[in-house]
Every structure is written in structure tokens, then in C-alpha cells.
Design a protein around this nucleic acid. Sequence first.
DNA 1: AAACTTCTGTACCAATCAGTACAATCCTAA
DNA 2: TTAGGATTGTACTGATTGGTACAGAAGTTT
Lengths: 180, 180
Amino acid sequence: MTPSPALLAQLGEVFREYGFEGASLSQITRATGLGKGSLYHQFPDGKDEMAACVLDEIGAWFEAQIYAPLRIAPDPAAAIALMMRNVETYFRSGRRVCLVGVFATGAVRDRFADRIAAYFTAWRDALATALGRLGRPDPAGLAEDAVAAIQGGLVAARAWDDPAVFARVLHRAQARLLGT
Amino acid sequence: MTPSPALLAQLGEVFREYGFEGASLSQITRATGLGKGSLYHQFPDGKDEMAACVLDEIGAWFEAQIYAPLRIAPDPAAAIALMMRNVETYFRSGRRVCLVGVFATGAVRDRFADRIAAYFTAWRDALATALGRLGRPDPAGLAEDAVAAIQGGLVAARAWDDPAVFARVLHRAQARLLGT
DNA sequence: AAACTTCTGTACCAATCAGTACAATCCTAA
DNA sequence: TTAGGATTGTACTGATTGGTACAGAAGTTT
């Protein structure tokens, strides 16, 4: 039983907007257009399974669009710049929260601990790899700071309801990464 | 009707752990030892009012312990270093989430928009004031980045379930603030 | 067309939810 | 001690919750 990427994207948006606890089945059926019968048919373990599938889909997207390019691109500096552009697009300039980050700071953190940690680890490590190839000092620390800056930039942009905040934080983080 | 700071602290911990939607009245009565009659007597508008009072209490604490010292301390560099130490203590080395940040990325963001934005603004501005007095370049940008780093450090520490991450992010953020 | 498989709709369930009402209890001032 | 105000406990409410069961509809294969 493989849920479609489109369905997982819809589920993801409900979880982003309402969080895990706040995303009731009513809201999910409304957002997806599927009834409870359909949802339970595809996700017999209920909301937990939906969220786990969504996290896996997000992880796969990031692997393809963010992490892998950082590891293998011939020009690490260009790859880092591209990462930042893709991050700005993916998070809708800070208007869309990072679902993994939201789960990390919520009551469901332990339920999805492996997936959450894996997402952050893969990102930090891929970025550190690119920084290492670029010859930047302390690649692990710079990578860790960048991942934190992106998460913090999202929180701040939401707090101020101002996407320009996210853009500025990203821009300055990129400059620190590249030493420019 | 002024709820005691101790009660507000207990409420704050329930909201931190379960989020706004997930913090049921059952959990709140359990955590506070007060029955529903008592809670509704003190907070006639229910959970919204509880959360608003908690946010105000947090804001007041930050004003006294974090923002005001940044604005008025004779030695801005020492004030910034003290801020970081206090932040590390307050957030229990990253084990305790920032409730304002959690609300900022949740469905209740709009309900408490003024309080959330005010918390972030006061912090950024107080820090920028200290940086300005220190003669640091782009104090507003540095301040914004530091506030984002703290938030992002909290998310990352939770994601990795590793307080050392928060400490490292704080340490490096402080070095950037002070130019050391 | 018939048989089989997959998917959907919906009635139902027990539990929980936030909130209301108010009697009872506790506390304080005179 | 009494009266009045503050606080608490709890029964009750209608609504919502996640989940179950399964008949019926839809899709696919022969």
C-alpha cells in the first residue's frame, strides 16, 4: 500500500498547520477529500502512520534535492548557494514551517525520534561534506550553525509574520558558510 | 484576579510539553493540582486566557532578566555574555523548548500574534542596542541572527536529543556577536 | 458477464474534550 | 461567632475525537 505523493503532500500541510495533536481526522478528511474509510484503508495504523509516511516523503525529497547535491556537486560553493535557494523556495520564504522541526519541539518528538534525528543528521553531514571539500574551517560547526539558522529563521519569520526575516537570515548564513 | 507566578510556571510547562491544542484540561488539572472549578474561576476565558497569561509572565521575566540588562548594563560585552548564560540556564541547555517559539510555529500563532512578535522584537532590539553601544557592525542583523540561532539551536538540540548542540550553537553565536 | 480485489461511505463506539452551573467548603474581616 | 467573599469540587452538557466494522461501490481480471 503506497500512498500517493500528492496525498502525502496534503497530509503534510495539515500537520504543518495544526501540528500532530491538532490535526484531527475531520481536518484531514476535509483537506484530502478522502473519507475515514479510505484513510484507514491506506494507513491502518492511523495518524501515526500518516505522519511517519509524511516524514519519510519529506526525508526523501530533501535527500534528492538538498543533501545529495551537496555531496556530489562538482562545485561545492555553487551547491551551497543552490541549497539556500531551494530552502527558501521549499519553506515558502518562511511562510511554511518545517514539519520535522515542529515535531521535534512537540510532544510527538519521541514517537518519531529516529526520523527527526536522521533528517537533521543527513543535512548537517551533507553540508559539512561540501564545506570540507571547499576547504572551509570547522565544517561540522559551520554546518550545524547553518541548520540551526534555517530552523531559527523559520521560527523568527513566523513570529514576526515577515518573510523578509527568513531571507535575511538565510543570506547571512550563506555568507558565513562561504566566507564571503 | 492575579494568578500566582507558580501557577503560571506550571501552566507554562504543560503548554511546552503538549502544545496549545494538546494541553487538555485534564493534563492541566493534573499538573497544577487545581480542579476545573478553580481554573475557570481564575481564567474565565479558559485555555486562551491561561496561555496569554503565561506568555505575559514569560515576557516579563525576559524583560527583567534578558532585555533590560542588555539595554542598561555598563559593559555591553559582559551583558551579552551574561545573556547567553541566562539563556542556556532558562532553556535547560536546550531540553526545554521556547514556548513563544512553539506557539509561533503552531496554529495558535495568530491568536497570540502581538505577544509573540513583541517577545521577539524586544529581544532583538535590546540586543541590537547593546551591540550598537559596543560598536559592532550591523547590530540589527547580528541581533536578528542571534535570536534565530537561539531558536534554531533549541530545535536542533531537541531533534538530536543532545543538549551539547545547544551549547555549541550558543557559544558560536556569542563569538559572532562579540567578534571574538 | 461474472468473479475477485480494492476502495469508499457511513453508522457506530467509547472516550475525551472544553465549558457551564452551582452547591459546598474555605478564608477573611468585623 | 457571623456574614460575606473567595475558592473548590463535581455533575452535567453537547461536541468532537480516533478508531472499528462492514456493506456497497468501483475497478480489474478472466
